[in-house]
C-alpha cells in the first residue's frame, strides 16, 4: 500500500514539476538576449584579436616584415569596417558595452586609426604606433607607443 502511494506521489510530483510552465503559461525566451554579442561585435573582436596575434607573430619573428605589413593592412581595414558596423548597430539599439577592458583597447585602436599618422609618401592613414605605412611600406616617424626598434628580433 505504502509502495503504491509512494509511486503515485513521486510520479505526480514529477509530472506537476515538468508541466508547471505549460499550465501557468510561463515562457522561456527563445531569441538573443541583449547582453550577448551581436554578430558585428563578435566580428570586431575577432579582427582586433587577429591584429594582436599578427603583432605578436611579428614581434616573435614568425612573420616577415613584408607579410606583416600586408596582413596588418588587411586586418586594419576589416577592423575599421567592423567598428563602424557596431557603431551603426549601437546607434539603433543603444546597447551597453559588455567588457570595459576590451572597450578601452578598441577605443585605443580607433583613436589610433583616426589620429594615426598620415604617410608622408602616399597619404595613407595608419594606426598609431605603426612602424611602416600599411599601404606603401614607407617608414613612418617613430612614435612613443611603438617601443623598441628591433624589427623582427
Amino acid at each position: 500500500m505504502g509502495l503504491v502511494l509512494g509511486s503515485i506521489l513521486l510520479a505526480s510530483g514529477v509530472v506537476v514539476f515538468v508541466l508547471y510552465p505549460i499550465l501557468k503559461g510561463q515562457w522561456a525566451a527563445q531569441d538573443r538576449q541583449d547582453d550577448e554579442l551581436t554578430e558585428a561585435e563578435a566580428r570586431k573582436r575577432v579582427t582586433l584579436l587577429a591584429l594582436r596575434d599578427v603583432e605578436m607573430d611579428y614581434e616573435t619573428g614568425k612573420l616577415d616584415e613584408e607579410d606583416y605589413r600586408e596582413l596588418k593592412r588587411q586586418l586594419s581595414r576589416e577592423a575599421l569596417a567592423a567598428l563602424e558596423a557596431v557603431e551603426a548597430e549601437r546607434g539603433e539599439a543603444g546597447a551597453v558595452a559588455p567588457d570595459p577592458e576590451l572597450e578601452a583597447q578598441i577605443a585605443a585602436v580607433r583613436e589610433g586609426l583616426r589620429e594615426g599618422r598620415t604617410c608622408e609618401r602616399c597619404g595613407h592613414l595608419n594606426e598609431r604606433g605603426s612602424r611602416f605605412c600599411a599601404s606603401c611600406g614607407a617608414q613612418l616617424p617613430v612614435t612613443a607607443a611603438a617601443g623598441g626598434d628591433e624589427a623582427g628580433a
Binding site: 558585428a40 563578435a42 575577432v46 584579436l49 594582436r52 576589416e78 569596417a81 567592423a82 567588457d99
Partner: peptide, 21 residues
Amino acid sequence: KGSLPEMRARTRPAPGTQEAV
C-alpha cells in the same frame, strides 16, 4: 573574463570586407 578565447566569436564577414579577406 575577457580572456582571449572568449572573444573569438568568428562570424560571417560584414558586407564590404569580403575582398579584404
